[in-house]
Amino acid sequence: MTLQRPIGRAGGRAIQRALGVQAALEWAFRVEQAQLELPLPPDVTEEGLGFGLEYVLLQRAVLGCKIDGGQHKIGGYTHEDAEVIAATVAGIPDSHGGKRMAIRVAELARAGLTPDWMPGAVPRCVPTIIKQNQHGTHAGTIVVGIERIRVRGVGSRATWKNIDILACPVTFSPHPQQIEAARRGYDDWWQALSWVRDGLIAGGMLREVEVTGAMPKARPWEGSR
């Protein structure tokens, strides 16, 4: 997706460009380089003393986000619609992930990415021990017990012999919990985008961008089965 920076005007009136919420986020954070201004927690002072300074520095280290200022990017103008979009993202409520989700939404938008929901991933049973020799690669085994058996000897005599009971340890890769976590993360991101979309549409504060109802596909893994 190519996002062009200018938004045109005709006869003094702004020409609104219709964008889905994901495209609008990418325009704001990737093209306009809007800054995510997260509110300070109650125990952090504006001067950033003590723990507050650690928090401010940590948040500034993530995507270059500024949480205690209102400054635009250096050397350029940030479109006011982009600032409105960034402010809306910063307001994602705790019920949708709060500050952590706001940073994730901005991070993905700035990179032009969608969360990896591990498309096509199917848990497969694989050995945990792999060995190689002149005959190739094969699964390794471990001794899980010893069995005493009676074997026929020379003539009519019989003897007892200890033999190892071998087993091949296996695991599932990728693990079902990995796939579940990835898809849960995608769903949480999708719900946050839905909240941002609804907020931008209801707020009516955008002047030159019109956010449409278009959304990334919900639970795309269900349609890929």
Rank of each mutant, 00 (worst) to 15 (best):
L53N: 07
L53G: 13
L53Q: 13
Y55L: 07
L58K: 01
R60P: 00
A61M: 13
V62Y: 11
V62Q: 12
G64Y: 02
K66N: 12
D68N: 14
D68A: 15
G70I: 08
Q71H: 14
H72A: 13
G75F: 00
G75V: 07
Y77W: 06
D81S: 04
D81H: 03
D81F: 06
D81K: 02
E83C: 11
V84C: 08
V84Y: 00
G91M: 10
G91I: 03
I92G: 10
P93V: 04
P93M: 15
D94S: 12
S95I: 04
S95Q: 04
S95T: 02
H96S: 04
G97V: 08
G97Q: 09
G97A: 11
G98F: 06
G98E: 01
R100M: 06
M101T: 05
A102Q: 03
I103A: 10
V105C: 01
V105P: 02
V105L: 07
L108A: 05
A109C: 02
G112M: 12
G112I: 01
T114G: 06
P115E: 06
M118W: 00
P119N: 11
P119K: 15
G120T: 01
A121V: 01
V122R: 15
V122S: 05
P123F: 08
R124W: 03
R124C: 01
R124I: 03
C125F: 02
C125G: 03
P127Q: 04
T128E: 14
I129S: 11
I129M: 08
I130T: 07
I130W: 09
Q132K: 06
Q132I: 11
Q134H: 12
H135C: 05
T137D: 09
T137V: 10
G140T: 09
T141A: 02
I142E: 15
I142Y: 09
V143A: 10
I149Q: 10
